[in-house]
């Protein structure tokens, strides 16, 4: 009886996962099809990949998108980590609550609203739209994510570690660099990865605040798709999928190594 129940739940999981991945694999599948559209698979070809690698504009945008994601997530991680520490150390509970609420509102508000408000903000300040404005807005919407990833680590952290370090002669800077930072590093790392993916897959905000000279992959794909899907996009999607897969794998490896180091050996 129990075993049967187990099988059903597995089947359910398999179906859900299959449904979620189906569109992606469908896209990737047709990237290897010769022909102009996805109505019928003709025969296997690398042709779309070849055109992709000859499409200098798209490749440049690809590199720029990665650079943007790296840069914005780095800055957001830096600011977000200090922000989380500040929230954690807030003396009054009320103030802490307000700061957290402000942080969470940014997390849940729709991208369209954030994008529109950034657009108004940048034009009001007279900041020209382009790489700079996109970078600033990506940093801004990534900070709350980093705060949310780092904060639990700080909460979990044993306060007596700080007392112990001071007891052993550590000054404020020693406590920060030798105790606090290493202990919350896993949170900082996952915050960084989250911010990176947030920046990578953002469309709405970028669409609002980007100008003529600068575009990211999602915006570029969107504008091309409006003129009819080209299978070159499928090839690009396949590459992006592999790239993200690699990213997740790297994150997994880092986590696993950390766990391995900490895992108790029996005895």
């Amino acid at each position: 009886m129990k075993k049967k129940h187990f099988v059903w739940s597995r089947l359910y999981m398999a179906i859900v996962l299959f449904m979620m991945y189906l569109p992606i694999f469908y896209l990737i599948f047709y990237s290897f099809s010769s022909g102009k559209n996805m109505s019928r698979f003709r025969h296997f070809t690398w042709a779309h990949y070849v055109t992709l690698f000859h499409d200098d504009r798209l490749l440049a945008i690809f590199i720029e998108t990665i650079m943007l994601a790296l840069l914005s997530s780095l800055v957001a991680t830096l600011i977000g980590t200090f922000g989380a520490i500040a929230i954690d150390q807030a003396k009054s509970k009320k103030f802490k609550g307000i700061l957290l609420a402000l942080n969470n509102i940014l997390m849940v508000s729709p991208d369209v609203i954030i994008g529109a408000s950034f657009l108004i903000f940048f034009t009001a300040l007279g900041i020209s739209l382009g790489f700079g404005s996109v970078l600033l807005s990506h940093i801004a919407f990534s900070i709350p994510v980093v705060v949310l990833m780092v904060l639990p680590r700080l909460k979990e952290m044993d306060r007596s570690l700080i007392d112990a370090a001071q007891d052993l002669g550590a000054n404020q800077f020693d406590v920060f660099s030798k105790i606090l930072l290493p202990v919350i590093t896993p949170g900082i790392l996952s915050g960084f990865f989250m911010a990176f993916t947030y920046s990578l897959d953002d469309f709405a905000v970028t669409f609002f605040v980007t100008g003529n000279g600068f575009s990211t992959l999602s915006v570029e794909i969107y504008s091309r798709a409006r003129q009819g899907i080209d299978l070159e996009i499928n090839a690009l999607s396949a590459l992006m999928f592999v790239f993200v897969l690699a990213l997740v794998f790297v994150y997994y490896l880092i986590e696993k190594r950390r766990r391995f180091k900490k895992a108790p050996k029996r005895g």
């Binding site: 007596s160 112990a164 007891d167 002669g169 000054n171 900490k262």
Partner: peptide, 17 residues
């Protein structure tokens, strides 16, 4: 605390993980 010639063994040991 860092300048006192006093050291402490904490209740939960507070070893740096």
């Amino acid at each position: 605390a860092s300048k006192r010639q006093i050291n402490t063994v904490f209740q939960n040991y507070a070893l740096f993980p």
